[in-house]
């Protein structure tokens, strides 16, 4: 398996990261190293092992449909860089 600089650039875009040409080069190499390392797992024969969907051996953790206390609008908006009309303000995106 080999990761190309194009894929790294695309992943960066999806994550809204701006990478310089040298960074793309560095990360391509580093991510490839990681993948090669992890690829070692493919050497295991897992034919009879059911796929694992969660590390915990737990299922069905539920809450009942009851309303609990939340935050006040002031608390909810406390970390907002910009707020107005009791709402978070963001650049317009349509």
């Amino acid at each position: 398996m080999s990761l190309t600089p194009e894929v790294v650039t695309q992943i960066a875009q999806l994550a809204r990261l701006r990478l310089s040409a040298t960074e793309v080069e560095t990360f391509t190499r580093q991510l490839n190293d990681v993948l090669v390392y992890v690829a070692k797992l493919n050497e295991l024969d897992t034919t009879d092992v059911p796929p694992m969907t969660h590390v915990l051996d737990l299922t069905n953790a539920f809450r009942s449909d009851a309303v609990g206390a939340g935050l006040s609008p002031d608390e909810a908006l406390a970390n907002a860089p910009q707020q107005q009309r009791q709402a978070f303000v963001v650049p317009k995106i349509i």
Binding site: R63, V67, G68, A69, G70, P73, L77, R85, Q86, F88
Partner: peptide
């Protein structure tokens, strides 16, 4: 996934939690 109410038409950001 949380206990906030689902009522429609409430004032903005009054039915929220962490």
């Amino acid at each position: 996934f949380c206990g906030c109410p689902t009522r429609f038409g409430a004032p903005p950001n009054t039915q929220v939690c962490p």
